[in-house]
């Protein structure tokens, strides 16, 4: 789904006292935008945080996208020893890849197999493996997905076009503490001679949430 074009520049730090009009942003900031600016400026004035920290963290967030997770999955598909390390300790294996975890979370990678299909959700809020996937989509954070994934996962999967046979076990992981999850989708047939880049290109965000399987057709770079 294409992101909306809001005509805004990407957020930038406000370390100078006056906001300047952003190119294309003609409307004054709304209530919550003003609140955020005011809270941040006060905390900076009180020297509790520094403007550079916010700026830097925006860069960190911008750098975390599903492409990172896709590379981890592609490597796991090609390298059985990496796959084993990934399944034993998800965070350490990602860090091997240079994907740092800037928070205190751990990562458990959930392997989809012929007999097991994994799905991740956070019913209480929006826990999500942000360091390796970036920010979650709205639907992951809204009530329908969060309420229904734990009571009717097969119906939820069907809404994404994913039908799981009855002889395959569905495992729904509800994140509530410091562990985050990443689904390791099954490598689709027909990819036997794909390069690592070509494999990564077919691993979309939704395959790593577990709502869809990886397929050769979706988002690939092959013709």
């Amino acid at each position: 789904m294409e992101p909306h074009d809001h005509g805004h520049e990407a957020g930038h730090g406000h370390d100078h006292p006056h906001d300047h009009a952003e190119i294309g942003q003609l409307a004054p900031p709304q209530f919550y935008d003003i609140m955020e600016t005011a809270v941040r400026e006060l905390l900076i004035e009180k020297k509790l945080i520094e403007p550079d920290e916010i700026r830097r963290q925006i860069e960190v967030l911008d750098s975390r996208t599903p492409a990172l997770g896709a590379r981890v999955v592609a490597r796991a598909w090609l390298d059985p020893e990496f796959r084993a390390r990934l399944l034993a300790n998800g965070r350490a294996a990602c860090e091997e890849f240079g994907i740092s975890f800037y928070d205190d979370t751990q990562l458990i990678v959930l392997e989809n197999t012929e007999t097991v299909h994994n799905l991740i959700v956070c019913t209480l809020c929006s826990c999500y493996p942000r360091p390796v996937l970036g920010l979650p989509p709205d639907w992951y954070k809204l009530k329908p997905y969060r309420a229904r994934a734990v009571i009717e996962p097969r119906a939820v999967l069907a809404e994404f076009g994913t039908i799981i046979p009855d002889d395959v076990e569905v495992r729904v992981s509800d994140s509530t503490a410091m562990v985050r999850y990443l689904v390791l989708p099954r490598r689709p047939e027909g990819t036997e001679d794909f390069t690592e880049d070509e494999l990564a290109a077919i691993v979309t965000r939704d395959t790593m949430i577990g709502v869809v399987p990886a397929t050769v057709a979706a988002g690939g770079i092959r013709q």
Partner: peptide, 24 residues
Amino acid sequence: AEPIQRVEHELEPWEKRCHALADV
């Protein structure tokens, strides 16, 4: 709950700043 609507949106600048603020 209702059927899932696969909505997503690119964060407004203030939302991204808010997320960065939370992390900091």
